[in-house]
């Protein structure tokens, strides 16, 4: 008897091939809806720290595609964790696993429904991990998710993490995107 999760989740893998459009590089790996099947998958795939630069993993609720354009993402945003190069060895895998456990374990109390998924970007210039939520206007939900997430990652008070609207990320880039919330 396996332990059912509240949601069915889909793991996606993105591998950068500059000759192809973005969406052609995105692959659905598998779906799962039990604790046991999550671990069978997690134990089978590469750790994020061992992926080639330019690759992403995304874990989203079933039916939500890991892109801004999806109906359930387009009004939303993300709590973004940016990591230094040094953190890849020490913290990247640990932070990503903690992110996954927050998602599948439904760690956000009354606001789990606001969570769409999470993305990890492995990049030479610095890795990123983010939890995506569905509506930037749901301030209580966004802030609760951010505070809980920061606690679960064990980030100290002095570290500030920011929440950015996808609509802003899509039109601006890099440091031009301003935080809608911080915790």
């Amino acid at each position: 008897m396996k332990h059912p999760l509240q949601n069915r989740w889909t793991l996606w893998f993105y591998k950068n091939d500059k000759t192809k459009p973005w969406q052609a590089n995105l692959r659905l790996v598998t779906k799962f809806d039990t604790v046991e099947d999550f671990w069978a998958l997690y134990n089978h795939i590469q750790l994020a720290s061992r992926l080639m630069s330019g690759c992403d993993y995304s874990l989203f609720k079933d039916g939500i595609e890991p892109m801004w354009e999806d109906n359930r993402n387009k009004c939303g945003g993300r709590w973004l964790i940016t990591l230094s190069k040094q953190q890849r060895m020490l913290e990247l895998d640990q932070f990503w696993l903690e992110t996954l456990l927050c998602l599948i374990g439904e760690a956000f109390d009354d606001y789990n429904n606001d969570v769409c998924g999470a993305v990890i970007n492995v990049r030479a210039k610095g890795d990123k991990i983010a939890i995506w939520t569905r509506d930037t206007e749901n301030q209580k939900a966004v802030l609760h998710i951010g505070k809980t997430y920061k606690e679960r990652l064990g980030l100290p008070m002095r570290i500030v993490i920011g929440y950015q609207a996808h609509a802003d990320t899509a039109t601006k880039s890099g440091f031009g995107v301003k935080n809608k919330f911080v915790v």
Binding site: F38, W39, Y42, N43, L101, E106
Partner: peptide
């Protein structure tokens, strides 16, 4: 009911899953 699992509970299954 809602199925919520804390991290220790989830972590407890990592290697049980691998051995089955």
């Amino acid at each position: 009911g809602k199925k919520r699992y804390d991290r220790e509970f989830l972590l407890g299954f990592q290697f049980i899953a691998a051995s089955t």
